[in-house]
């Protein structure tokens, strides 16, 4: 066995989980464990206590209500992916989930766990950012909702305070008249993205872009909005020239991670811009079809 010894607590309610989290200096929440267990096997993480919340009934629920999909912290990616209601309500989420690792990982991995882990190359934090989602957090002081843009604060770092845990994610459903796309570049299916994008455009009656949302992942220390691309598109007719210009501006102001073993910074910029172009094309087409 590779992980260091730890104490295991199965929490069947959120208060139980919070009590266990508050009772140790280095306690971690265990949901699907598909990110946490590998880093424990590598002893990059050596928590004293693991608080397993995966069976807490209140965290095992997901529901669509008032244009928002709420996903509890115990809901696995695969459950969402195979759920007929989710497939109909949020196809962008289902496409995003399909890019994550392999079905065997998604069978255990959770959406909220991916948000809390905050891997810079992860798809779901970028989806939440692009769609203005919120993370619902519980702690001793009660519950609060953190907007996606404020939740991930650095690589593998979030706005969660000591003793807090993610209990749910709130994902606004893409509205009518908007078109969305997600895409990534990875060496093989299931690998971490070298560059990825989630984007959406809304078209007005005249075919102009009434709003664009572009979030990049795998290219910076956190998922990041491509404000440069969004500004180019706002109010513009999204023709080839506009989409070219948007893609060219996608990395404006983005602090791209430096050269590393998987890709150079230049590769991420060039390939990422091409990816943005491709995804925007798909999003505009989807918006046109939906209008």
């Amino acid at each position: 066995m590779k992980p260091a010894p730890f104490e295991y607590v199965r929490a069947d309610t959120v208060p139980e989980a919070l009590a266990a989290l508050g009772g140790a200096d280095d306690a971690r929440v265990l949901a699907g464990g598909q990110s946490l267990v590998p880093i424990m096997a590598l002893r990059l993480a050596t928590p004293e206590v693991l608080v397993d919340v995966s069976r807490a009934p209140e965290l095992r629920e997901h529901r669509s209500d008032g244009g928002v999909l709420t996903v509890g912290a115990g809901v696995t990616d695969r459950e969402l992916e195979l759920d007929a209601g989710v497939r109909a309500a949020h196809p962008l989420l289902v496409r995003t989930l399909s890019l994550i690792a392999h079905p065997e990982i998604r069978a255990r991995g959770t959406l909220c766990g991916s948000l809390a882990h905050a891997d810079p190359a992860a798809e779901l934090p970028a989806l939440l950012l692009a769609t203005d989602g919120e993370v619902e957090v519980a702690g001793d002081a009660g519950r609060r909702r953190v907007p996606a843009a404020e939740f991930v604060t650095g690589p593998f770092t979030t706005a969660l305070a000591d003793g807090e845990m993610v209990v749910a994610a709130h994902l606004p459903l893409p509205g009518p008249g908007s078109g969305w796309a997600v895409d990534e570049i990875a060496r093989r299916p299931g690998d971490y993205a070298l560059a990825g994008v989630v984007c959406g455009v809304e078209l007005d009656g005249a075919g102009r872009c009434a709003g664009a949302r572009v979030a990049l992942f795998g290219v910076a220390a956190t998922p990041v909005r491509a404000h440069g691309a969004e500004r180019v598109l706002d109010g513009a007719v999204p023709d080839d020239a506009a989409l070219d210009a948007a893609a060219a501006a996608a990395f404006d102001g983005v602090d791209v991670i430096g050269d590393e073993v998987h890709a150079s910074a230049g590769y991420r910029r060039r390939a990422g811009a091409a990816l943005v172009r491709r995804a925007l094309t798909a999003a505009v087409r989807a918006a046109g079809e939906g209008a």
Partner: peptide
């Protein structure tokens, strides 16, 4: 290490026995 748990294929090394 893939095994089937409650009908789903999962990684046997990424799940603790207690789970």
């Amino acid at each position: 290490c893939t095994v089937v748990v409650d009908g789903a294929a999962v990684r046997g090394c990424l799940m603790f026995a207690v789970q």
